[in-house]
Design a protein around this nucleic acid. Structure first.
Lengths: 361, 361
DNA sequence: CGAAACACCGTAAACGTTTACAGATCCTTG
DNA sequence: CAAGGATCTGTAAACGTTTACGGTGTTTCG
């Protein structure tokens, strides 16, 4: 790996100055003869621009960071899959930060913006602390936050609407004649947990159903925990006829336990998940799930950031992405898509459209 | 976003030269008094090192690229999830390239190595063409390839062993008494498709089973396609008692169709998938699947690259990661893990251990 | 007390670009 | 043919660091 050629090398070989080389490479007006010489030299030497030197001078790295807790989380993955092509099309590289569940790491990442190795950042905070807001205020580069941030925070903001999402699900269950609708939630000190708990209460109230503490069980956002929570719930109350689960993994755990307990889904108990991940379509019975529009939030965030990188100084924007209820077999015995195999398969394929290539050998 | 402070700003404020500032910031021996002044000034100004300038001078970007066709593919995702923490721990950032199914894009990415915005790269090529080999030979930075590359190619190489993987599965099915074992494959002009087709043939031969063309169906690596292929297969031959599917999505499609046809799984037909993705544990019945060790291949690749970045000039290494058969309900009626709900849930949670947080609100 | 040894620090060059400015070359025109 | 303008090109500075080198001031020792 010998020292690669630089514009100086080219300049010498072409017998011109480095300024001319630079001009040719950037397509600035130059005499044909010079262009030819420079191009020839560059070609022969296999010259490639040094991105680092470029960035230093131009103060643009053409890199954007995406920071979230864990790429393995289907919701974040869905965002990533939309963000990536949008950025790529605009000529930006994507730097990935998987911060883990540690809030301090998120702050670190925000701080590292000062190193100027990226032009901007899209972040999905686990929770929004005072420290976050402070760093966001002082950020050295534009940040777009996915997840709600208080009014007045000087960043673009893309929000989900889990309130409406939960209402859609509860309304759906109620319309199917269910009245003992339980909530299986994750920890209420997380942003999604809190939002979903509150939304559940509101949705019941709007329908005139009583809020029964017995019907709320709190576990964690995992399958095993979800299962345990549901088991506890079933032990306590016997007449549950629907489960609103705070995410798809919890719902899968619920299916496990219901099956073991001999309850039929959806005849005895209807189940709704949340996030509409690939798992929802894969499970059996397939899972009715509330999509909070992760993919779309990702796309919107990327677009907001690009806008900001281009023009810079407009007011912070807030976009809320509406939720969508995807009805499958776990709430209605014969969802249209499941009767026709082709249709069902077609739908599933669309959902995981680019889950392609069978791995590698 | 005012112009941030530089070492020059600090130097002025602390009343020393930029050389001293640099020395202090890099922990080189300096008088206590100077250290104090510089640190104080840096603190007050909220100074953060400029990574670009650093990289230019030091010729190290502390960035590594990971390039594959699509992050949405569970196999690649599994790699990514292992690569990320390894690199992070070593102080490297991760630049993600999702090239899509276009081979030319992979070549582009290799070419862009010359821009020197990363110190090295991990790549999972869709297929390995002449152009790939040529670029790999001339690469301006170390590359680790996941997927087989011919002997003599000057890069570190991490391989799966789908041959052994298929054999594990076929042996398992045969041991369960199945003799009409069909193969549902993806396109045979892809690397994995070809390897799996050949491996299937070999495995049958080793067991003394006849190779029956009727039992091989070729579709694509998607769920819908898998379903269609299996439907065609069932139409043609009636006595199939086991399906070896070339990936998990195909296997899910198979489950759809078998259910619709009124066949019981595994009593009438046993089904095996490949890649052991999250979907395998989520489906019902849960899917026996051959893990080709994507996660481990990712980890190994990252480690090989780090080694190479540190010492540089040793011989290219080749590591082959062994496959593993994960037995679940789709081949044996009562797999141990499924009878005990807690156990089943626990296992699933382990598989998707950090599929956490319920999304965001 | 002078010189040698040492510790610390500042000057300046370098990394590979882009670009303002001024100088050189060419063409046009009176 | 001289002058003027229009083009093109080269010199040099800048981006924000790191680091080799030499200079200063202090200490130590003969």
């Amino acid at each position: 790996m010998a020292q690669g050629p630089t514009i100086t090398t080219i300049a010498e070989r072409a017998g011109v100055s480095i300024a001319s080389v630079s001009r040719v490479l950037n397509g600035l007006p130059t005499r044909q003869e010079t262009v030819r010489k420079v191009m020839a030299a560059a070609e022969e030497l296999g010259y490639v621009r040094n991105a680092v030197a470029r960035s230093l001078k131009s103060r643009r790295t053409h890199q954007v960071a995406f920071a979230m807790a864990d790429v393995g989380n289907p919701a974040y993955l869905a965002m990533l899959r939309e963000i990536q092509p949008v950025l790529k099309a605009a000529g930006y590289r994507l730097v990935l930060h998987s911060t883990g569940a540690v809030v301090a790491d998120e702050i670190d990442v925000l701080h590292s913006l000062g190193e100027r190795y990226v032009d901007g950042m899209i972040m999905v905070p686990l929770r929004v602390t005072e420290a976050h807001l402070q760093m966001l205020g002082a950020a050295r580069a534009p940040v777009v936050v996915i997840g709600s941030v208080p009014e007045g925070t000087p960043v673009d903001n893309v929000r989900a609407d889990s309130r409406t999402g939960v209402r859609l699900a509860v309304d759906h269950l109620h319309a199917l004649g269910r009245c003992r609708i339980a909530l299986v939630n994750g920890p209420t000190d997380t942003v999604p947990g809190a939002a979903r708990g509150a939304a559940y209460r509101e949705a019941l109230a709007e329908l005139g159903l009583p809020y029964d503490e017995e019907l709320v069980e709190i576990g964690d956002f995992y399958r095993a925990e979800g299962g345990r929570a549901v088991a506890a719930l079933l032990n306590r109350v016997s007449d549950v006829d629907a489960l609103m689960c705070a995410n798809d993994l919890i719902a899968l755990g619920a299916l496990d336990v219901l099956r073991a307990a001999g309850k039929r889904v959806p005849e005895d108990v209807a189940v709704v998940g949340m996030d509409d991940t690939d798992l929802a379509a894969a499970s059996w019975p397939s899972l009715t799930s509330v999509s909070l529009g992760s993919a779309e939030r990702g796309r919107v965030a990327a677009e907001l950031l690009l806008d900001r990188l281009q023009d810079g100084e407009h007011e912070p924007r807030v976009v809320t992405v509406p939720p969508r209820l995807v009805v499958r077999a776990s709430t209605t015995p014969e969802p249209p898509a499941v009767r026709d195999v082709t249709g069902a398969a077609g739908q599933a394929a669309t959902q995981s459209r680019s889950t392609e290539g069978g791995g590698t050998s």
